[in-house]
Design a protein around this nucleic acid. Sequence first.
DNA 1: GTAAGTTTGTGAAACATTTCACAATAGTTG
DNA 2: CAACTATTGTGAAATGTTTCACAAACTTAC
Lengths: 209, 209
Amino acid sequence: MEHHLISEKTVERLILYRRILLTIDPEKQKNIVSHQLALLTGVKSPQVRRDLMVIGYSGSPARGYDISSLIESIGHFIDAPVKQGIALAGVGNIGRAIIDYFKGRRPKLDISAIFDIDPEKINRVLHGCRCYHIDQMEAIIRAGKIHMGIITVPADSAQSVAEHMIRAGVTGILNYAPVKLVHPENIHVENRDITLVIEKVAYFSRQVR
Amino acid sequence: MEHHLISEKTVERLILYRRILLTIDPEKQKNIVSHQLALLTGVKSPQVRRDLMVIGYSGSPARGYDISSLIESIGHFIDAPVKQGIALAGVGNIGRAIIDYFKGRRPKLDISAIFDIDPEKINRVLHGCRCYHIDQMEAIIRAGKIHMGIITVPADSAQSVAEHMIRAGVTGILNYAPVKLVHPENIHVENRDITLVIEKVAYFSRQVR
DNA sequence: GTAAGTTTGTGAAACATTTCACAATAGTTG
DNA sequence: CAACTATTGTGAAATGTTTCACAAACTTAC
Ligand SMILES: NC(=O)c1ccc[n+]([C@@H]2O[C@H](COP(=O)([O-])OP(=O)(O)OC[C@H]3O[C@@H](n4cnc5c(N)ncnc54)[C@H](O)[C@@H]3O)[C@@H](O)[C@H]2O)c1
Ligand SMILES: NC(=O)c1ccc[n+]([C@@H]2O[C@H](COP(=O)([O-])OP(=O)(O)OC[C@H]3O[C@@H](n4cnc5c(N)ncnc54)[C@H](O)[C@@H]3O)[C@@H](O)[C@H]2O)c1
C-alpha cells in the first residue's frame, strides 16, 4: 500500500468522512453519493470524490459509495494495524478533560500512559489510567512502544517534556502548551493553542459584520 | 482601514508573532530581523516579511523591525478597538478549563457570559463569572453586544446552541463539539475537534518512522 | 564620504489545493 | 435492449500560498 504523498488536509477530511458515515444507521441507508457526504461534512462534492480517489476507493456511478465498505477502506488507511498507545504528560485541567473524554472513543487508540510531577497525582488511578512520575516517562514509552504523545504541561516545561518524548521514540506530538516546540523535522507536531484560536475567531467575528 | 482580503493563515501567524514578541525583554532587545522572528515562530523569513507587508508594517533595512511598534501595529490590526465580550455555553470539563485558563490573558478579550442547563451550576460564580441558564443566553448576548461564542456543550446540543447564538448576533463561533455546525456562510466557525486531531497525529506519527 | 555588509520589500516562480467540467459508466424504465 | 438519468473519476483550469531572488535602502566602519 502506498501512502506517503497524502496531504494533512486530506487526512483530516477522511477522518471527518468516517466520523459522519458512522453516524448513519446502516439499516436505513446503505449507499451515499458524494454530494450528500459533502453536505454533511461541509466540503464540496468534487473534493469528496478527489479525497476518496487518493485512497483508491471506487464508488459506483449512479449509486454512489457503499457506506460500510467505505468506512472500512478509510479505516484501513487511517487506523493503526494494531491498537496504538498514547502518552499524555500533565494531568491538569485540559489533560484530565482529554483523558476522560477520549477513553474508549476510538477502538485503535488508547491513552495508555499518563505522567505528572505532582505527588498528589502520582500513583493514583485517574479515569482508569495510573499516573506515573514524569521521570519514568522515557522508560515507560520505550517499553510500551508508544509513538504519540500529548503535552498538557505548563508552557515552561513543554520543551523539556517534548525532548524526553522524542528521545524515547515518539514521532507525533499534540501540543496544548502555548510554545513553539523545537524538534527534528521528521517529527510531526500539531499545536492546539487555545488563546491563539480565541483571538483568531474574535478577529474574524469582527470582519464578518 | 482595509482588512478584508487577509487569509486565515496570515492572521494566525500575526497572532503568533505578537505572542513571541511579547516574550522578548524590551530592555535587552529593541529590534528584530525577519530571520530571527522566523526562527522563533517556526516559519520562513520571506513569509514573515510578506505577512508584515500585508498589514502595511515597514521595517528598516539593515536594522529590521522595531519590536514595540510592531507589537502595536499587530494589535491595531488584530485587536478589537474596545474590549470584546465572549459567551461560552457548556460549563463542563473543557468549558471550565478554558474559562479558568483564559481569564485575564488577553486584555481586549473577556469571557463575560457563561451558560449551562445544570441547576447545580446556574447562578453560581465560576472563576469570577456568573453562570446563567441557557434560556437566558439570547437576551444576555444581545444586551452585551457579544459577537463571539464558544461551544463546549455535548454534541447533541451544539447545533441548537449555535443557532441561538447566531440569532442573538454572534458572528464567530469556536466549536469544541464533534459535529459539523450548519450555519450561514457569513458566520465564521472554527472547529476544534479533539478526537479528530488525536487521530490525525496518530496517523502521521506512523508515517514518520 | 564611500565602500562593504545587512536586511527589507516585492515581483515572479514554484508549489499546493480546490474547483470545474465532462466523458465514461452504471442503473432504471418502458 | 435502447434511451434516459444520475453519478463517478479525473484531466485541466483556477485559485491560493509559499518561497525565491534580487534591487533598493539603511547602517557601519574606515
Ligand atoms: N486549560 C486550558 O484551556 C488551556 C488552554 C490553552 C492552553 N493551555 C495550556 O495547557 C497546559 C496545561 O493547562 P492546564 O490548564 O491543564 O494547567 P494545569 O495547571 O491545570 O495542569 C498542568 C499539570 O501539569 C503538571 N506538571 C507541571 N510540570 C510538569 C512536568 N514538568 N512534567 C509533568 N507534569 C507537569 C502539573 O502538576 C499539573 O497537573 C499549559 O501549557 C497551558 O498553557 C491550557
Ligand atoms: N473534554 C474533552 O477533552 C473534549 C474533547 C473533545 C470534544 N469535547 C466535546 O466538548 C463538549 C463538552 O465536553 P466536556 O468533556 O466538557 O463535557 P461535560 O459533560 O463535562 O460538559 C458539558 C456541559 O454542558 C452542559 N450542557 C448540556 N446541555 C446543555 C445545553 N443544551 N445548554 C447549555 N449547557 C448544556 C452540561 O450541563 C455540562 O456542564 C462535548 O461536545 C464533547 O464532545 C470534549
